[in-house]
Amino acid sequence: MKLIGMIQDVLSSMFKKTATISYPLKPSPPPERYHGRLDYNAAKCTGCMMCTRDCPAETIQIKVIDRKTKQFVMTYNIGECVYCKQCVFNCKFDALHMTNLMWESASDSKEGFQLYFGKKEHIDSLLKQKNEEPTA
């Protein structure tokens, strides 16, 4: 048996479950510490822009609507993000968090990956502005 090393594994695996997970039928939940979608809390943000400065993918953008009343819109692209968690460490005010959500990120358009955080009217106005801009 020693001379054919793998024979034990091979024979015993006939009576074992396969190591393959039948994925879409059997969902596998992400672990707790998984680096998934970024979460943003506008109430805590001060608009210091430390997160945007060190973002390796340069994908976080914070639009300041009004700094006094903490009106910010954070845009972030989950397709560009490298999930390194650096922004969370840079944030001194606990406004950013990594969640373990949306790890099966898929979309049929590029816009699907773009996430907006903030008040709805601000986001709408921002999007309207963007649409009106001539595409050079």
Binding site: P31, R33, Y34, H35, V82, Y83, C84, K85, Q86
Partner: peptide, 14 residues
């Protein structure tokens, strides 16, 4: 994945 949050580029360092 459980511990550092990613499977490949787990970026432990800061």
């Amino acid at each position: 994945e459980n511990f550092f949050g990613n499977r490949v580029n787990y970026s432990v360092n800061i």
